[in-house]
Simulated assay, not measured.
Amino acid sequence: MHTRTRLLRSIPFWVLVVGSLASIVYGVLQLIEKLSVMETTLTDGTATGVEVYVGQSVVVVAAILIGAGIVGLALALSLATAAKVFAPVAPAVEVIDWDADEVADEEPAAEALETEQPVAEELDADAAEVEAAPAR
């Protein structure tokens, strides 16, 4: 029987995973867009200060978003690994059959009484031999 861990049912865990992926995707899209605009306007000589200088800042912010998304995914992977390694062990549960007609514990108790009698007789015989032995 396979049980799902609590982490897989945790809403904050999935918000972290989805948010990290969204941050990476948005950062990559911004990075590609601004770099392509900067490249085309700089190569054809029509670049303005807004496209060049603001574009550089947008590229840095996009790189930060990508880095934050990667850190978030690494954290989610670490949490999933820790949840798997330190998962609580399910307790062993003995199922009791309340409808059973016979009780299985009565037979071993009777057998135990039968085996204890010869042992008691042997101990009595050993004690008698010790008492009968001559003292030195």
Rank of each mutant, 00 (worst) to 15 (best):
residue 80 A to I: 03
residue 131 E to H: 06
residue 37 V to Y: 03
residue 80 A to S: 12
residue 44 D to P: 02
residue 64 I to N: 02
residue 58 V to Q: 15
residue 105 D to K: 06
residue 66 I to M: 07
residue 59 V to M: 12
residue 43 T to R: 15
residue 2 H to E: 12
residue 75 L to R: 09
residue 98 W to Y: 12
residue 125 A to E: 08
residue 51 E to C: 00
residue 67 G to V: 02
residue 7 L to K: 08
residue 75 L to S: 09
residue 10 S to D: 15
residue 37 V to N: 02
residue 59 V to Y: 04
residue 31 L to T: 00
residue 101 D to A: 14
residue 89 V to R: 10
residue 117 Q to V: 14
residue 25 V to N: 01
residue 65 L to E: 10
residue 95 V to H: 12
residue 116 E to R: 10
residue 108 P to C: 05
residue 2 H to A: 08
residue 7 L to I: 14
residue 131 E to K: 12
residue 83 A to D: 14
residue 110 A to S: 11
residue 121 E to K: 04
residue 85 V to Y: 11
residue 43 T to W: 11
residue 133 A to I: 04
residue 41 T to K: 05
residue 133 A to D: 03
residue 112 A to Q: 05
residue 2 H to W: 02
residue 26 Y to V: 06
residue 7 L to D: 13
residue 52 V to Y: 09
residue 115 T to I: 05
residue 15 V to L: 10
residue 83 A to I: 12
residue 15 V to S: 11
residue 123 L to G: 13
residue 44 D to G: 04
residue 107 E to A: 15
residue 70 I to N: 01
residue 73 L to Q: 13
residue 112 A to G: 07
residue 41 T to S: 03
residue 127 A to V: 10
residue 5 T to C: 07
residue 106 E to H: 09
residue 38 M to E: 03
residue 63 A to N: 06
residue 125 A to K: 04
residue 23 S to M: 07
residue 100 A to T: 09
residue 17 V to N: 05
residue 130 V to E: 15
residue 113 L to M: 02
residue 18 V to F: 15
residue 19 G to E: 07
